[in-house]
Design a binder for these strands. Structure first.
Lengths: 199, 199, 199, 199
DNA sequence: AATGAATGAGGTTTCATTCAT
DNA sequence: TATGAATGAAACCTCATTCAT
């Protein structure tokens, strides 16, 4: 919708706190009062805009859970999908972090994404452990949040902040680091070798 | 100083955006105008309060660079120091993340801390590589920011957010994860050519 | 407009410096914020109110430039028009002098009025000199500002200050003084070569 | 005194309204509170500074009342004295006009100067009329304030405002204009000629 | 639904003045 | 007398929100 699109434009341009309802309606070419026919207030419209983005991240993180094929290759594919979604929505994703610090609803959304992300990683680890690809002494309840923090926060400084990295090398190093942390062996390697110090 | 202490109290209680200069002077039992004898505005007083905290983090991260002794033990000590400083200043540290999104000065401070933290980790990795404790093919320019992201963001969700972890186990898992990522062998282990989980 | 009228009322009653935006909105029966929908600040609204008055003066000073008829009679008519406009807008005219000392825009307006006034007088003198009603050795570049100063400042003390003069006698003395300064002879008098006090 | 001098400096530099007590004590190198040991408030210190200036003008206007000698020459001398004092104290004199619009005491002082100036001119006219140098039909009660307005306001625009005139020519034209207004004949001319149309 | 003028609470900031030392 | 920190009244201005049209 016109106002929703305008809101996202203004938020991305000015940030949440500098954006005023006025700026949004001006951007949309609408009248001041029209805004309140659609949204309760600035928070409300932000929550809606934000949910578009968080949904995209959820998709990137949740999908592709095929249980067959090469584990490392699939992990890498998931990581690449995550990096791409993060980069494409960097501005809004930065804003979600910003607004989460003051809006309980956005904060809850943000936590829910992380929760799901962690959950998905935990499940993967458990599956790998069952298949003997990851040692049983890996504490998934701690390692999963650590890996999610590592990846999401690295993306934050890369795509929202001003750190610059080379795409391929960064993506590969991320996956490589996951592999080292988990001692994740490719199924082939498991077959061939005994097991698992990270290479 | 009275107003500085009050400012920190109010910021930690109400957050940056809900805090007003009025609240601060009320908390300090001072008059409205007194505030402006010491600070230019709310931003200014926040920057000062924040710099106290960022300085504490800097100390935790920078100090203790003895080059002898057990590498893993010293890494663990540094991590513990970091966790303790983060926990002790959790509220303010959360605020720094919050305000960094809108105040360029706080943002620059925040970036500088990260830069120094990464730098310190890079240096450690380089030293370990020279001593043969870490393989040369570890890309410190990417692994250092990844490790810093992992640790700082995990602390954020733990101490500022509402995730709960058991202190000892979390601390040990963090160090353990660093060790796995780097393939860091204790000097002894290097000598004895024996694997083992870090203490 | 409601606020503009209220602003003028308050300015005339309290002066520029004692008037607050609050007083103006209270006088208008409007809300604080309404003011800023129309004006940027107190200065701005004053400039608008002032421009109404300066425009009135400009009209009084510029108009009626018929080139025929009795010179003295027409001079007197112009002077009367000036006195009337000054008296009718005395309060505001005093304020313009007051605010001109601190607001560059009002100051520029004030100067422009004087410039136009002087210019108009200069032109008249030149015309009279061409027609032989005023001697060529009159230095219009100096005499015009002197006459304008005389008239406007006399009005200031009369209508804004507390000096009191009898209307007819003052008006006639002013015109009479202009005539003496310029040695302005009525066309008839020039023809008849007879002196006479201006009507 | 140190504060008085500083006050004048600050007033002349910043104007009355922009000048703060703070600026004055800073200029004087004194402490905030010291000011109130000497003056009641900003108005008070301005009144004192102003009275120095108004006294100078009073002197220029009142003195030199010798009743003998050439009338026009003495008039010119008085006018020159007035111009010189005005020019020398232009900044403060402008401020007096400014502050007179809001401070009753300064306003009264300003009026008193004008009253004395007018009075002095009236007396001169009366004396000249007795001596036959000025016609009896000149209405001194109106012509005196007109001449004072002319001279003082011309000086205002010249020395305080931004109008520029050549000193000698302006001074002579002023006196010349007085002479025309009054039909003032030099005693010599009176003796030689019959009477008095201004040359 | 759309409009946009009007609202007024809420914040910011200044500065003349006081007062304990 | 000198100091300068503290005071607090009084102004300023913004902006989310309402409401009559």
């Amino acid at each position: 919708m016109k106002l929703l699109k305008a809101a996202r434009t203004v938020f991305e341009r000015d940030g949440y706190f500098n954006a005023s309802v006025d700026d949004i309606v001006k951007e949309a070419g609408a009248a001041r009062g029209s805004f309140y026919g659609y949204f309760e207030d600035k928070r409300h419209v932000f929550r809606i805009v934000a949910s578009e983005v968080t949904e995209a991240v959820r998709q990137a993180v949740i999908s592709g859970s095929a249980t067959t094929g090469d584990a490392v290759a699939r992990l890498h594919a998931t990581n690449l999908r995550y990096l791409e979604v993060y980069r494409a929505n960097a501005a809004m994703f930065g804003l979600v972090e910003q607004v989460a610090t003051i809006d309980p609803v956005v904060s809850a959304d943000r936590m829910e994404i992380r929760r799901q992300h962690i959950s998905r990683v935990s499940d993967s680890i458990a599956r790998w452990q069952e298949r003997g690809l990851v040692k049983k002494d890996i504490d998934a309840d701690l390692v999963a949040p650590l890996l999610v923090s590592m990846t999401s926060n690295f993306c934050y400084w890369w795509f929202v902040g001003s750190e610059t990295y080379e795409w391929d090398r960064a993506a590969e190093t991320i996956t490589d680091t996951w592999v080292r942390v988990l001692g994740l062996a490719s199924p082939e390697r498991v077959r061939r070798k005994r097991g698992g110090s990270p290479d």
